[in-house]
């Protein structure tokens, strides 16, 4: 097995062994910190041991029975849901509009809409904090949703743009030629064809909002603190093992999302539409 060629240039697996070893180490470096919090969160000790000497659900209890943690989880879920809806609508409209128009303004608008993804988050955070202070939007759900929607729009646009570039616009033209209004043609012909891209855009939007930390640190506090803001403050001020329990829940969630994303992709590849 090891002496069989690994590539068309006749390098054997044996000659490649050092490369496999090296890549294995790098992958371990990437993966272990993502997963190790899960077993550690079941430790009974204040200094999360690995492997835990005494197993307990102590830190999960601390999370579920704390009204503060529950409250900030609820805030994050609300903000995430509202951001998903708003960013998906605005991002899909923008992506579709830019895809259909050949206007001179198109390159300017599309690069402006990509800015939130390119600019360091700390800029967004201080800019938003500065303007919200004047508008009275600091520490409000509305303020958080608007900021997170801005951050999520580029991801929705990339996802929907991918779908649109694989969609044959002649189908929509045919619908228009048969007398459908532009809105009806979009809703009954185009949208069903790109719905998987729109769904993955929604997923991106939710994750962007739910995972967002830097802007939330600045513009949310007190009763409207997001989960990430509370976690950040907690990690900075003391290493509270309750965060390990929450982190484990988030790790499991992100694995679920990743698997769901792969599933959506596979389904879209299997479906006959070019989406």
């Amino acid at each position: 097995m090891l002496h069989r060629p690994a590539t068309s240039t006749q390098i054997t697996h044996l000659q490649r062994l050092w490369l496999y070893g090296l890549v294995g180490l790098v992958i371990a470096f990437l993966i272990i910190p993502c997963l190790i919090v899960v077993p550690m969160s079941f430790s009974d000790s204040q200094y999360l041991e690995f492997p835990p000497r005494v197993w307990s659900l102590r830190w999960y209890e601390a999370y579920f029975f704390s009204s503060e943690w529950r409250q900030s989880t609820w805030v994050s879920l609300k903000v995430g849901a509202a951001t998903t809806i708003l960013a998906t609508i605005l991002g899909t409209l923008a992506s579709y509009g830019l895809h259909k128009s050949g206007n001179l303004l198109k390159p300017i608008i599309s690069s402006a809409l990509m800015l939130p993804m390119m600019v360091p988050l700390i800029f967004v955070a201080i800019g938003v904090f500065f303007v919200y202070a004047r508008l009275g939007l600091n520490n409000t759900i509305t303020g958080l949703v608007l900021a997170h929607t801005t951050l999520a729009i580029p991801f929705v646009m990339i996802a929907v743009g991918n779908g649109l570039s694989g969609f044959d616009m002649n189908l929509e033209r045919a619908a228009r030629g048969l007398g459908a209004s532009p809105v009806r043609a979009f809703l009954t012909v185009t949208l069903p064809q790109i719905h998987i891209s729109v769904l993955s855009g929604m997923l991106f939007a939710f994750v962007t909002s739910f995972d967002e930390v830097v802007v939330s640190i600045f513009v949310s506090s007190g009763a409207n603190s997001t989960l990430t803001k509370r976690m950040f403050a907690n990690i900075r001020d003391q290493v509270d093992p309750t965060v390990a329990a929450i982190s484990s829940i988030l790790v499991v969630l992100s694995i679920v999302v990743l698997v769901a994303g792969q599933f959506i992709q596979r389904r879209s590849r299997a479906s006959p539409s070019p989406d």
């Binding site: 990437l30 993966i31 910190p33 993502c34 190790i36 919090v37 994750v207 995972d211 930390v213 990430t228 976690m231 950040f232 990690i235 965060v243 390990a244 982190s247 988030l250 790790v251 992100s254 694995i255 999302v257 990743l258």
Partner: peptide
């Protein structure tokens, strides 16, 4: 997978 895991969680780890 690390790409999808929250930066906050990884930093905590």
């Amino acid at each position: 997978l690390p790409f999808w895991t929250s930066v906050l969680v990884r930093t905590y780890a």
